[in-house]
Design a protein around this nucleic acid. Structure first.
Lengths: 146, 146
DNA sequence: CTTGACCTTCCCATCATTGGAAGGTCCATA
DNA sequence: TATGGACCTTCCAATGATGGGAAGGTCAAG
């Protein structure tokens, strides 16, 4: 099976399959005589695993750990559970950050009459500071999760 | 005032100040005889504006639009409000994505006994698919906001 | 034999941010 | 005055996951 078929069956683009190989998330597959990568059912299985983990917001590095546990027959479910719960905590932290930003903005927008007049507390708050527009400690690490 | 002081007073790193200048978010400031960038109070004001907007999760491009409105005395508050509410909607969408991921993971983790035994529904769900581990349409555009 | 659909590798861009190297400037202190 | 350290400058690179594209090889159907 060529990379295009593997991509269709797994839902992972050919580009990303090569990328995952490059960064060591998956092992380099066998090659045909013509140099084409050749995949089999187990590779598709593995790629689907990766895609599902990505959909759950795990980073490539975290997936690497999960795949290790997956392949390790003597793995302890407690390890997997710990990783999953850590990830849940990270997701919750990000949720809180976003909620705080959204609340601040909603509050500002609610006080902006929104007609043609130029007065606008949103702009004023950004410009003059003070009040809810300065979380100061938030927004850090934004974009590090996945 | 040199760039280091501007960074301290505004809360924007010197690196980022130069970056914002490079991408055209701020105009190039005057230079001293020695070639050092020289900033005044209005520059600091502007940089604070940028930092607050970044803390609210606006992208540089969005901030550019906001600053345009800020500088434009005849701006309409409806424009600002529209941008703010669009951003709130984007934040809410991201919140929903993250909530869905977290719920799925929490569900899986709750069914993982988490002791030393190898059975683990988290890994099994990732490996075999089916069920909540396949949002399929989510996770797209994750990381595009801000 | 041509055409089109594949495949290969390699490079570049994204976005905001940080890091570092190499070199110039300024000021205080020994 | 010399020296050291704290600044400043520009330039280049890396991050993470992904997409885009060029240049060239391969294959199967028409």
């Amino acid at each position: 099976m060529n990379i295009g078929d593997a991509a269709k069956l797994s839902g992972v683009s050919a580009k990303m399959i090569r990328y995952y190989e490059e960064v060591g998330l998956i092992r380099a597959p066998a090659r045909n005589q013509n140099g084409y990568r050749s995949y089999d059912k187990s590779n598709i299985h593995e790629l689907k695993f990766i895609r599902r983990a990505r959909d759950l917001g795990f980073t490539v590095e975290q997936i690497s750990g999960l795949m290790h546990l997956w392949r390790d027959r003597s793995r302890a479910s407690s390890d997997v559970k710990r990783i999953a719960l850590e990830h849940v905590a990270a997701l919750e932290a990000k949720q809180r950050e976003i909620a705080e930003m959204a609340n601040t903005l909603r509050h500002l927008a609610a006080n902006c009459h929104g007609d043609g007049r130029p007065d606008c507390p949103i702009i004023e708050s950004l410009a003059d500071g003070g009040g809810p527009a300065s979380p100061t400690h938030l927004g850090k690490g934004f974009g590090k999760l996945r």
